[in-house]
Design a protein around this nucleic acid. Structure first.
Lengths: 309, 309
DNA sequence: AACACACTGTTTATGGAATAAACAGTCTTA
DNA sequence: TAAGACTGTTTATTCCATAAACAGTGTGTT
């Protein structure tokens, strides 16, 4: 029965755990899965996941594209192994970093660092529970940080999920900026300034009053780290919760589920009203668009009659 | 000067704001950008972003692939417009939902709902600040929810970023499960059980003590919503912070930046030690792999000699 | 010792993708 | 009425992943 499970493992996952049959006969192998994955990761680090083609990886190793398929069943498996390689494991320092909060902060930092070093990992869609050795290692480290608390196992999972999510979210945004910098060939401040200028020209005070106010307050030019702020607030809340758990009081209506709007969302009339709003918005957008185009056309015409520019 | 900015807008963004020149001469247009985007969104909703090819979109409208390029400069632009379409705007109900916390929760719920309805949006990489009309609308709604608080504009942005990130993270994971269900043709509980079984067979107590403990406590079979938990804790922490801001006390060492490890990470010897650890881990993994393969081979041999199975 | 055949990396071929370039037809405007 | 801006189309290019058939190579079995 236990044996029956192994062959059912998705092929890539079996490879990641090193449970793939090793051939005994035939010519000596000239490559290895490890070398292939390494080459693929190098390409992805340098040029992004899009640049990782079977041909490119093979070329980097001096072989023909099809040769890789003797080691990897499909590109999908290669990508899973790349992710595993780039994910690595948390450093030993994490487990020795003071209390649960310091440990979680260290995990956040190391994960974020990883995401910035290998931003292409964020382009790989998530499917299901982390079922490779290195992903499990991060999970284990997070749960270990909380082992001394009185949280339930489910709550510990939720907390670790929160930390990983925070690192991933921060990584996504920051990697997005890094990509912009690389693609446009600008440095960080230049990007920020360009964006601020675009924002100022597009975000009007009547359509977006609060956003406009933030722009004018220079909030988008600020250099503070909004992700660190969010993490700190989250850990504050978790700390309160842990303290409450330690004292055995959790009656205070701290909800696991959000208050549900399903009754409203299912209401036919509400849905229709909502639909009307969408339609109206569409009409408004179309009207605004026409207005802008007219303005543009008028300007063009004037320019033609008055070619001074 | 103001005019100079417009032509510098990335093409797709210009389209999203409806600031694209409308041709006056030539034959009547048979399509429109809107119809193209609509068709593309329908395909993505049904079969994922991968199924959206220029050919597929054109076919759905009864035209040849190349015809689309008269309306859209490149596939990238089409995808930006699809994202904008699927993002929509927050409902009016959000702004009327009690205090800041209720409003943020409503925003979270609506965003998550959107992500589940159009999971392919999560496959589109983020680049830079939200610079399309609908993305700006969500941002504005979030800032509006916090308008009554004493937070700075930067802090409000950070809070809204937190909420959007939470919705996105939850959406990513849940959409991952939904995809698994569709691809494997299993229902939710079946997936959960399969994963639990895989976990039990792969996650050993000595390599992953805390994770193993969580598995045995049945934490992965639990049905509570870990994302709602994380959001609730985050909003708890934000609530404390807001209360403190209202009383003008923010001295308490609430850090915007995480305590920095850069001095450690830059230390040459630390880096070398870390590298050694990685190497050692690699060796360990290889050894474990060999062990497993030997076990497997031995089992195979025995099975061959003893074909009773 | 010899042979079968499991295995190697390679060649060739298929189908799909984005999109550049050139085309013939259509409608506006000068 | 003619130029030419604009339409949707055709054709061709380049890049993908990968299936299938190939000729060598080394091991286990006889």
């Amino acid at each position: 029965m236990t044996e029956d499970l192994e062959p059912e493992l998705p092929r890539g996952i079996a490879l990641a755990w090193g449970v793939a049959a090793n051939p005994q006969r035939g010519p000596k192998r000239e490559m290895s899965v490890e070398r292939i994955v390494e080459a693929a990761v190098e390409i992805a680090d340098a040029e992004g996941l899009g640049a990782v083609s079977m041909a490119a990886v093979a070329a980097r190793l001096g072989f023909t594209p099809m040769s890789l398929y003797r080691y990897v069943n499909a590109k999908e498996d290669l990508i899973l192994l790349m992710q595993e390689e780039a994910t690595g494991t948390p450093s030993a320092a994490v487990g020795e970093a003071g209390g649960w909060r310091e440990q979680l902060e260290a995990l956040y930092r190391e994960q974020l660092f990883n995401h910035l070093a290998h931003p292409w990992v964020l382009d790989i869609p998530i499917s299901g529970v982390p079922v490779t050795p290195n992903l499990a290692a991060w999970m284990d480290a997070g749960l270990g940080a909380l082992a001394e608390t009185h949280l339930t196992h489910e709550e510990r999972l939720a907390v670790m999920l929160f930390v990983s999510g925070a690192a991933r979210w921060a990584g996504s945004i920051l990697a997005g900026y890094a990509r912009l910098e690389r693609e446009r060939g600008l440095d960080g401040p230049a990007i920020t300034r360009t964006e601020d200028a675009m924002f100022r020209s597009l975000i009007t005070g009547d359509a977006y009053p609060h956003l406009r106010a933030a722009i004018e307050a220079g909030a988008f030019l600020d250099e503070a780290d909004p992700f660190a702020f969010a993490l700190a607030r989250g850990l504050d809340g978790i700390g309160d919760y842990i303290a409450a758990a330690a004292e055995g009081r959790h009656d205070a209506g701290i909800p696991w589920q959000l208050p549900d709007d399903a009754d409203i969302a299912d209401d036919k009339r509400y849905r229709e009203a909502r639909k009307s709003v969408r339609e109206a918005e569409k009409v408004l957008r179309a009207a605004r668009k026409a207005e802008r185009q007219e303005a543009r056309a008028a300007r063009d015409r004037r320019a033609k009659q008055n070619p001074a520019g």
